[in-house]
Design a protein around this nucleic acid. Structure first.
Lengths: 210, 210, 210, 210
DNA sequence: AATGAATGAGGGTTCATTCAT
DNA sequence: GATGAATGAACCCTCATTCAT
């Protein structure tokens, strides 16, 4: 009565659709998105070439879903950044935030990178519900937090939350992007020691003369 | 009898090699690097399909050279950032710097973006002599400037030039990258008004409480 | 426990086999046979993709049956040509015959046309019991009628019934076929006004000098 | 200076374009047009798979050209029908005409038949210059001839040239089409003996009572 | 050295057929 | 028997690269 299941699914309770997304995501994480073929994905999923088209409109559709799944999974594994205004030290909160964003970028940017040459995938991804990070990288979220701290009097009254958030998130980008642009594989990106501390000290105190 | 020259070069004094690089560069600037074929390049250069292989190892080699030429040409057209330590106001110098880097990123990142899916090109590009900007985007240069100003006493004695440079350049990235990730065409990227001012105010004063 | 019936049949008393044939026939009549897939047929029949293979050897088998059903159904709807020798005027009988054959061809040829690229289907169709019209289009029947009228003295004693029948039926073909060969959709084929009259006048009187 | 020639062309002076058309035409004549793949054609031409697309927009374009070439070649090999009004006996002229059309149909219809399922090919074929026969099979030409003979007084003054031409050409169709519809291979179609004579006698004298 | 047609591996996609449920 | 997802061969087409001219 029920139709047959893919042999690759034997024993699991996953849908083949999810299985395919997972396979594509795994390839994305392992080898990047460059030169990924539908045959690669089918092989990774240990499944016939054609199945893909039973569950997705086309390759780009699958890739967009896989990207979405990848982002979601990374976000889930990192948890939400702690930022609760008024709780703990502002500097500590920011340090936690920076480390969160760094990990996020390291995990996510390489996957995006390979897709910049495929605008269709990006467009479809953007159309998916709640593609949270999507490069906005939580900048808005951070700005909100800073604004709240400022209103609590824990930051300078003339602090510019948008500018500060842009700088902080941008600095995190700046740590990942140059490696990507030099062709460094995703796994080998390193953060200079003391990066977060220098960043936070600078953003708190400024560099202008006393 | 000197060997024949490509008809497209008649009257010029450019080598065919440079001519090809220029053609690829023009295409890169005009349409991005996404779906660029060797035929496109040959056609743009008004030259036979095969010549390419008389002057370059392969397509990726040519693209790396073209990318290098593109970066150099943009840098040349923008001029070097004015940053001479001790001259003028620091804030004004930084503003000029920020606007320089913004223009640089807007001009250069789209070309890089399409090549993130082709690590070979990036690797070869990185191996080329002095691929200055390459995403390091003059961060080192800016850090040098800031260090000099600090040593002149025009910045706080405990200012962290590396961190500040990372934040400034990163903030510039942050203005271009999200658009690319959302598939916005290169020409339509916009800078929020007041961006540079907010940035510099924040980096100078910091956001910490007085 | 009797075996389960397809849900699409609930309440009907048709066998699933006949139901499938009917569905294929409907598609053939509506869209022609050109790009017909088994999925299309199953969907039209509101039935699972695979059932087909419980009742037919393969797709071609089903199509042959559907073609047969289509021909039979058209013949049934048109009724038998009136031709009863000795009754009414010969010319009137012929006119009725011509109009009959024309309608037959218009209804049937498009279905055949799409199948000319699938000899297997045609072969199986030819093997089915009494595929009456099949392009012979009742020529034999018409010849019989003419022969009978001749023997009754209502046609010239040296009239050639076979040749006349071939010409009449062929003229009807000639009215449909060129449109098909030019890619005109089945529904848009038109008969030139006065076609039947000119045809019959010519076949009765001949064109030779008196 | 000149680019390389296909190895399959060694020694000949044909263009590869013509070579491909000839190969497609040969396959069309030998196996019909059903299930013809681009690989089949390339193989028949002893040429790489991709060349086709250096000379034709796509497969359908090539098939349309091949069909056109086939028709032209058949017409050339048959010569033009003699039909000169006022010369020789009308009946003899008609007999020559009938035999011409018969040969034409036998040679051409099978090729068309397999393409009825590919309207695009037919449409492109129709757009080619002077697709003379194209199913119109010279009916208009014949009608012109008959009209001229009538005006010379060698046919009945009330003869209907259009109707007569339709009947004659249609009768020729009628001799080929049923075989095709029964799946008879192109080479095995036979003409009943005495076919042309019966046809012409009937069309000249008519079958009505004296 | 330049030409540009020829090459052919490999890409995304379709669809008749199978088979575990 | 019926289901309908899974299968995989085969299709059309692209394009980096080669090479006779």
């Amino acid at each position: 009565m029920s139709p047959r299941r893919a042999s690759a699914l034997r024993g699991g309770d996953q849908s083949l659709r999810d299985h395919l997304i997972a396979a594509a995501e795994a390839l994305m994480a392992r080898r990047g998105t460059a030169g990924l073929t539908v045959r690669d994905i089918a092989r990774e999923a240990r499944v016939a070439d054609g199945v893909l088209y039973n569950h997705f409109a086309d390759k780009e559709d699958l890739l967009a879903q896989a990207l979405h799944a990848h982002v979601s999974s990374v976000e889930r594994s990192l948890g939400t950044p702690p930022a609760r205004a008024g709780v703990g030290e502002v500097a500590d909160n920011l340090r936690a935030y920076v480390e969160h964003v760094l990990r996020l970028h390291i995990a996510i940017l390489p996957a995006f990178a390979g897709l910049l040459a495929q605008p269709k995938v990006l467009t479809r991804f953007a159309a998916l519900p709640n593609p949270m990070a999507a490069g906005r990288g939580g900048r808005a979220h951070l700005a909100d937090y800073l604004r709240a701290e400022r209103d609590l009097g824990r930051l300078a009254p003339d602090a510019d939350p948008e500018a500060a958030a842009t700088m902080i998130v941008g600095a995190c980008h700046e740590t990942v992007l140059p490696s990507l642009l030099r062709g460094v594989p995703a796994g080998e990106i390193e953060i200079p020691p003391g990066f977060a501390d220098g960043l936070i000290a600078t953003v708190m105190r400024g560099i202008g003369p006393a």
